[in-house]
Amino acid sequence: SGYITRRRNHWPEAERDFSTAVALDPRNPNAYNLLADTYVLQRRFPEAVQTYERVMDAGERTPIVQFRQASAIFNGTANSKPLREVLAKSPDMDVAGGQTPVRVLFALIDGNYAEAERVLAASPRQDFQDIDFSFYFPKAWFEGLIARTRGDSGRAIAAFSAARTILEQRLVVKPEHARTSAVLAQVDAALGRKELALREAEHAVELMPISRDIYDGVLVLEGLAQVYTWSNERDRAIELLQKLVKMPGYINYARLKLHPMWNPLRGDPRFEAIVASLAPK
C-alpha cells in the first residue's frame, strides 16, 4: 500500500507503511529499499543512509546494500569516494544493470572517456537501470552520452540513432508508455530534432501528469527539462528545474552538480543557484 500511497503524493503515509514493513522484517530488501528510496525522493539523504546502516547491522552486509548506502551519500553530498570504493571492491557487480551507468558517470566526471567506453563495452547487458528501479535505458543511450560528452558528434549521432530505433520498437509494444516517450524525446533532442523532441516530451507529460502519479510524473518532467537543456531552451530548462527541486524526485545535488547532461546550463547564475540550494546544509 505504501507504494501506491507514494505515487499519489501521500509521503508521510508511505513512510509509515514502509517503516512498519521494515520493523516486521528488517532483512526484506523490498521493504528497506522502498523506505530508503522514499527518503531519497524527498532528498532526506541522511535518513536513507541510516536505513541502510540498520539493514547492515541486521546482518545484510552485502555489496548491493553497501552500494545503495554509498549512492545515498553521493547523491546528497557529491562525495563520490565511498561509492567508488564499493564499486572497486565489487568490480563485477551489476544488479539489474544498475552499477555500469555509475561507473560510466564517474569515468565521464574524471574526463576518462576511454574508461567510460571500456566499462560500457565490458558489460554483456543491452539495457541498464540508471535513475530509478523501473526503467531500462538501452546501451546505445550511454554510448551516445559518452560520445556527446567527449565532443564526438559523428559517434553520438550513430549511437543515439541506434537508441532511437530501440525506443521506437518499445513504443510499438506499449504506445502510451510515458517514460519511453520522454527518453525518446531526449534522444531526438540529442539528434538536433528540436521541434519533434519538444512535441514528444510534452506528449509524455500529458500521458503521465504529476496529478495522477507524482513518481513517474516527475521523472517525465525531468526528461522535458533535459530536452530543453539539449535544445538550447535555457530559460525554460531553468524555470522547470526551479519547480522540480521543490517536488519529490531523483533530481539531487550530485546529479545536477556533476552529470554531463546538464553541462549546457553550467555557468548560468540561475542554474548554479539551483545546484547550491541542494547542497548539504
Rank of each mutant, 00 (worst) to 15 (best):
R54T: 13
Y32V: 01
G217V: 09
E239H: 14
E195C: 08
E85A: 15
E143P: 07
T62G: 02
T180R: 02
E47Q: 13
P209R: 03
A273S: 09
Q129I: 01
Q66T: 03
T149I: 08
R125F: 13
L87R: 00
E117D: 11
S19T: 14
G59C: 09
A116P: 07
P248W: 11
A225F: 01
S1M: 14
G98C: 11
S211I: 05
R8K: 14
L240T: 03
E202Q: 15
A23M: 10
I109P: 00
V40C: 11
T229W: 11
V220H: 01
R54N: 13
G98S: 13
R43W: 06
P269Y: 04
I73H: 00
M261Q: 12
E176V: 14
G97T: 01
E60M: 15
V227A: 08
I131Q: 10
D130V: 11
E272T: 00
K194F: 06
F74L: 10
R199T: 14
L35K: 00
S181I: 08
P175M: 02
G111T: 07
F137N: 07
F67A: 00
M247H: 10
L120I: 11
H259W: 06
D216Q: 14
I157K: 15
E222F: 10
L167Y: 08
A96P: 06
P82V: 08
T77R: 08
D130L: 11
V65S: 08
M208Y: 05
E272G: 04
R16G: 01
M56Y: 03
A116S: 08
L105P: 02
L191W: 01
D132I: 10
A14I: 09
K281E: 09
Q42N: 10
R155V: 07
A159W: 03
R150K: 15
P138D: 03
Q186P: 02
A121C: 08
D235A: 15
P26L: 02
R155G: 06
K243W: 04
D57H: 13
A70W: 03
L191A: 06
D188G: 02
V40K: 08
R193D: 09
V49Q: 00
A70D: 02
R164W: 01
E85C: 09
R6S: 05
V95I: 14
D235V: 11
M208C: 15
Q66Y: 06
A107W: 00
E117K: 12
R68Y: 10
D17V: 10
S1I: 12
A116Y: 07
H10L: 13
A31V: 01
L219D: 09
I166M: 09
N263F: 05
V220S: 00
N75W: 15
S90I: 11
